Amino acid sequence: SSQSQGISSSSTSTMPNSSQSSHSSSGTLSSLETVSTQELYSIPEDQEPEDQEPEEPTPAPWARLWALQDGFANLECVNDNYWFGRDKSCEYCFDEPLLKRTDKYRTYSKKHFRIFREVGPKNSYIAYIEDHSGNGTFVNTELVGKGKRRPLNNNSEIALSLSRNKVFVFFDLTVDDQSVYPKALRDEYIMSKTLGSGACGEVKLAFERKTCKKVAIKIISKRKFAIGSAREADPALNVETEIEILKKLNHPCIIKIKNFFDAEDYYIVLELMEGGELFDKVVGNKRLKEATCKLYFYQMLLAVQYLHENGIIHRDLKPENVLLSSQEEDCLIKITDFGHSKILGETSLMRTLCGTPTYLAPEVLVSVGTAGYNRAVDCWSLGVILFICLSGYPPFSEHRTQVSLKDQITSGKYNFIPEVWAEVSEKALDLVKKLLVVDPKARFTTEEALRHPWLQDEDMKRKFQDLLSEENESTALPQVLAQPSTSRKRPREGEAEGAETTKRPAVCAAVL
């Protein structure tokens, strides 16, 4: 046999249950609850290399294929790409003598399909299967379609040439079993990697079954959420508030809700932002270029202005709740996480202390139980975000031990490091100062900020419009641009040419 590394010779191994799959997660993409704000000051410096380099560890398999027929071997997927077919160049070659004697062998292509993985959001991997055969590759009886790919989820059954000719079961060793999710959700989405997690739940990458488009699904544990919100009269209202707010909003710089499922837990389906959180971008770069800050901040102002015009105060604006559309420097941003939002009543007064301390406005800290506050709290938070983006460190921090965090904020005395700000323009610093004003009545509004000289930049605004146009074009394009080929190089076993392929839609398939 010419099988590559990772293939075992026996096809009769006992199949494990899916609970053996491991679970991976990374930083929070968007969480309903406010958790302790991640610290920006503690960015690790590059460490000196050791005298002796450690040995390379043996790579762990990321997936496993269990053979369902004699003549096929099990495969431990270690590499990122595997070709399957009769050709000797394939990493998994159909060359077992037992297999060659079967009637089905002649229906398999020289290069029938490939399984591979690509880097997705949060640097996690996504597994795909890609059909290159004349007679078809099927996943859970659905045709992939020649020249098309679809994501592979845990426990997928792979069939060759005929939908009933099941050859492998695919085990993704990095994700959960699909069966743990409600059927209504599974009918519409293929669940994938964990993108982030918080005290009350997690955010998962998923794929729409009909279109193969990526989405983010925010899962909120009702049990954990009820415990964490025990002081509230009705904890469920917080989730329902977020859903109702998101459904009503329609702005290019605000995250869109696509679906909602109320089962044992809450499942909020949101558009996916491939670039992750602004927080991670700031930490990764230490600070952002001023031109990049301007492009992002302009969009934040437009989003918050839209919220305020619609009578909504976000109340928890922070870099973790600003998501980026891509890994590119120039990209769209979207505001997310409306769990603490407040729809303005007639009095415009709110007395609930919520939000993240580092970003809270002075009037929030001094008015607990005594007075109210209004939309100006969001403008203060925007000032803190702009400060961080321009400088790479927070204006107020618990680690300045000589003054408490509350006193720093209520006095408006931010930590100004001259040598850092020497590289920032006077106009940018002036806008920061106009937003970090203790008196909410004297603080800049979103309208005033948008009129500030720093943002009178036609090149930046043109760039934003171009990015918007690109997004609109990409969302308007159909996901499947061509029909699967019906040509046949070899006959199917026991049926006429093209008899099955043309009847089945290529579900969740995307043209390369």
Rank of each mutant, 00 (worst) to 15 (best):
G392C: 15
R443K: 00
A422S: 10
F261K: 06
P440T: 00
I257P: 01
L295H: 13
T347Y: 14
H308I: 01
A376H: 14
N310S: 05
Y359K: 02
Q305V: 05
D337I: 05
H251M: 10
I385Y: 01
K248S: 13
L455D: 00
G345M: 00
R462G: 07
R315H: 03
E426M: 01
S397C: 15
Y359T: 02
Y267S: 05
F261A: 10
N415W: 06
K503A: 00
N472S: 15
A291Y: 02
Q408R: 10
S425D: 07
E497D: 08
P362T: 06
P357Q: 12
E271A: 14
R451E: 09
R351H: 04
T356K: 02
L317M: 14
S485P: 04
W380H: 06
K256T: 07
Q408M: 06
L323V: 15
V424Y: 14
P319K: 00
M300D: 01
E290V: 09
I343R: 01
E448K: 14
W421R: 04
Q299F: 00
V269A: 09
Y298Q: 14
V364Y: 05
T352F: 02
G383L: 01
D280F: 14
L270A: 08
E471W: 06
S325W: 12
L288S: 06
A361D: 01
Y296T: 12
Q305E: 13
P357A: 15
Y306I: 09
L246W: 03
R504K: 05
E264V: 08
C253W: 02
V269N: 13
T446D: 05
P505D: 06
L360Q: 07
E277P: 03
F297N: 03
A263W: 12
M300S: 08
L295V: 08
I409Y: 01
W380I: 00
C354L: 04
I313S: 04
M460I: 09
V480S: 06
V366E: 10
R287Y: 13
H340L: 15
K248G: 04
P453R: 14
T370S: 08
T475S: 14
E471Q: 14
K258D: 06
I255M: 07
P491Y: 00
I343N: 15
Y267F: 10
D407W: 07
D378S: 00
D265Y: 14
I243H: 03
E328F: 09
F297Y: 13
F279A: 03
N250D: 08
F387R: 01
T358L: 12
A361C: 02
N285V: 08
K503T: 06
K286V: 09
N374S: 11
K289D: 05
P362I: 00
L349V: 07
M300Q: 03
E290Y: 09
I254F: 10
E244P: 15
E363W: 10
D262A: 08
N250I: 14
K489S: 07
A371M: 08
D316F: 00
Q465P: 09
L344P: 14
C354Y: 02
A506L: 00
T370Y: 01
R462F: 12
E244K: 15
N321S: 03
T502M: 08
K413I: 13
V364W: 02
Y298K: 10
C331I: 00
I335W: 01
E309A: 10
Q299I: 02
V283G: 07
L288F: 08
E277M: 01
L512V: 06
A496Y: 07
G339W: 04
I243N: 08
T292G: 10
Y359L: 04
T336N: 13
W454C: 02
V507C: 05
P478F: 02
I254T: 05
L405E: 03
A263S: 10
G412W: 04
L450A: 10
D330N: 10
E309W: 15
A428T: 04
G355Y: 00
A449P: 01
S404G: 04
T292C: 01
S404K: 14
V403A: 12
V269P: 01
K248Y: 05
A376Y: 14
E458S: 10
S341R: 01
L382E: 05
H308S: 03
W380S: 03
H340S: 02
S397P: 08
R462S: 08
E448V: 03
T370H: 12
L436S: 03
N285Q: 09
